[in-house]
Simulated assay, not measured.
Amino acid sequence: MQNNQSRKLAQGAMMIALFTVLMAIIFYVPLAGFIAMLIAPLPIIWYSATYDRKSSILVTFIAVIITFFIGGLIILPASLIFAAAGMAIGDAIYNKRSKVFMFISTSIVLLITFAIQYLISLRLFEFDFINDSLVLMRKSYEESLDLVEKMTGQAPISKETLAEMFSVVEMTIPASITLAVFVFAFIFISINLPIVKRFKVDVPKFSSFSHLRLPRAVLWYYLITLTINLFVQPELGTSLYVVMINVSLILWVLLTLQGISVIHFTIDTFGLPRMLKVLSTIVAIPLYSFVILLGIIDLGFNIREYIQAKKQK
């Protein structure tokens, strides 16, 4: 018992030190920082996957505090994000959860962590980094347009169009952040789980992307959103308009993924070259309307059964 406790403490100290080193690399070694950023949650993942939740929370908390002492407030937000992601992924492994559960729980934890940091930044420090980023981006665009106009004598887009574009960007911030969080969660899981597996940790597996099937409820949400947009027609700038445009954006992305999954399934079913998967995914971006329609049809009528029946014939 004493040996197990000593091992737990020693390994906890090692993971804290490793996490601190990775965070230091991210902020002080620019070229290696990107790679360190991708595997930064790894020490917390391994420890949380090996030991109970109480010990994992303690190690995660100490790791964040230590990074604060080496980098101050500037390093704290990133440290919290990576530590929270590591804790969520590791805890899901320890409790034998599915990879889908791990993905959703990690995304939610990251979203909550980001929201808390944003509120603290806004309330305590009166610093709105989202709004400031938009202002900086808009200023950069305006300067670029002015430069192009001076060089060619004609502006690519009008100031009114630019204002409308940034108005839409500002209103879709909630959906954009949500989608970005899901992407980060997927990246962390995809990169770190194979590494953790090498340390003899039993990790869950995702089914093939070609077998991705969203809940049918997504189709109903899309139909409700479409009905509101067509018949209620919320006015630009109203709360309902902001909600609808954010929900629509998320649903478009989900249905696009569903449509691409159907294309991949068809390629696998008929034994076509795998390179077609890459090409079809690239082509799906400009043809997203067709791909969304394909995703809707698959959710509503399960066209994969028809594809399989065609293959058997």
Rank of each mutant, 00 (worst) to 15 (best):
F19N: 06
V283S: 03
T60S: 12
L212M: 01
F69W: 15
L257I: 11
E170C: 10
T227C: 15
I120N: 00
S140Q: 09
N229I: 10
S248N: 12
I177T: 08
I307E: 11
K277S: 03
D146L: 07
L80H: 00
P194H: 03
I26Q: 05
N131D: 05
T50N: 06
T172F: 06
I16H: 10
L124I: 08
G237F: 13
I307P: 08
T238Q: 05
A284P: 04
I16M: 08
F290M: 05
K313R: 04
T67G: 00
L254P: 01
L249M: 12
K8C: 09
M275H: 08
L147K: 13
V29P: 10
M171E: 11
I191F: 14
A84I: 04
M102C: 06
I108C: 09
T172H: 07
G271C: 01
D298C: 12
R274H: 10
M165W: 11
Q5K: 09
F69K: 05
L58A: 13
V181S: 05
L255K: 07
L179W: 15
K159F: 14
I189K: 07
P286Y: 00
N246M: 06
S190V: 03
Q117L: 04
V232P: 13
I189Y: 14
V183A: 13
V203H: 07
V243Y: 15
M137E: 12
V64K: 00
N302V: 07
D52F: 10
F186E: 04
V243P: 15
L31C: 08
L219H: 02
G72R: 08
K150W: 05
I112W: 06
L179D: 13
T20L: 02
N246E: 09
Q308K: 03
Q312F: 14
L145K: 07
I39F: 15
G295F: 01
V181H: 02
S248M: 11
S48N: 03
V262S: 02
F265A: 08
R304F: 05
K200Q: 15
M244H: 13
A284Y: 01
F103W: 10
G12C: 01
P30A: 10
V183C: 15
W252Y: 08
L226Q: 13
M102R: 00
D128Y: 03
V100R: 04
T256E: 01
K150S: 12
F182W: 15
I16C: 09
S280P: 06
